[in-house]
């Protein structure tokens, strides 16, 4: 197994362009959390001609709705949710400069086209590894939509957050490559 690539977030164009499907990465820096309810509100803001609650250029959005933290904890368990639910909203955000996404499961063709066109990257974290991933989250603060509870937008500071590149800027797709390699045709 190859060594992980250390990357910092927000992502530079150069770094986003260098990552390849199948790379193991450790992310350090800032991630913003958002699930479908928060995405819906972001798109409504854009439709109304308003500004987003955070500067999206170069950012990585992590699709997660954590468990509530216990007193004294930074965050509860925090593994990825299914990314496909965000597909309808994602190309619009990539156009505005969103560089990376972390979730689980496959993306739509529109999202993949947008990733390629704007040199972004889609990564997956291990679904269900929520207590493990939690350890890499050092700070969490709500930046918008507190009323959404676990679905509020949070700014996370992470160190060595583990993920795997699924869709890269050149069209590489780990889901396709993986299945092709291990499929047995009977």
């Amino acid at each position: 197994m190859s060594e992980p690539v250390r990357i910092s977030a927000p992502l530079s164009d150069e770094m986003a362009g260098k990552l390849r499907a199948g790379d193991k990465v450790l992310i350090s820096g800032v991630l913003y959390t958002a699930r479908d309810a928060a995405h819906k509100r972001l798109i409504e803001l854009l439709d109304a001609g308003k500004e987003l609650p955070f500067d999206i250029k170069g950012q990585i959005i992590y699709y997660v709705g954590p468990t509530p933290e216990r007193p004294g904890q930074v965050i509860g368990s925090a593994g990825p949710t299914t990314s496909g639910r965000m597909d309808a909203y994602t190309p619009r955000l990539i156009e505005l400069g969103l560089k990376g996404m972390v979730g689980k499961g496959a993306r739509s063709k529109d999202v993949l086209d947008s990733i390629r066109k704007h040199k972004a990257v889609y990564m997956a974290a291990v679904g269900g590894a929520a207590a493990l991933i939690r350890r890499s989250i050092k700070k969490a603060e709500i930046v918008a939509y507190e009323d959404l509870g676990p679905e509020a937008i949070r700014r996370l500071e992470v160190v060595d957050f583990p993920a795997i590149v699924v869709n890269d800027a050149e069209g590489g797709d780990l889901f396709l490559q993986g299945v092709q390699k291990y499929r047995r045709v009977s």
Partner: peptide, 25 residues
């Protein structure tokens, strides 16, 4: 990569059990 993922899944439920944390959010 599959082995690595399974390793993370195993480490995760071990942490969850030991620390009384939900294994999945």
């Amino acid at each position: 990569l599959g082995k690595e993922v399974l390793g993370q899944i195993i480490e995760n439920f071990e942490i969850a059990g030991a620390e009384g944390l939900p294994m999945c959010q």
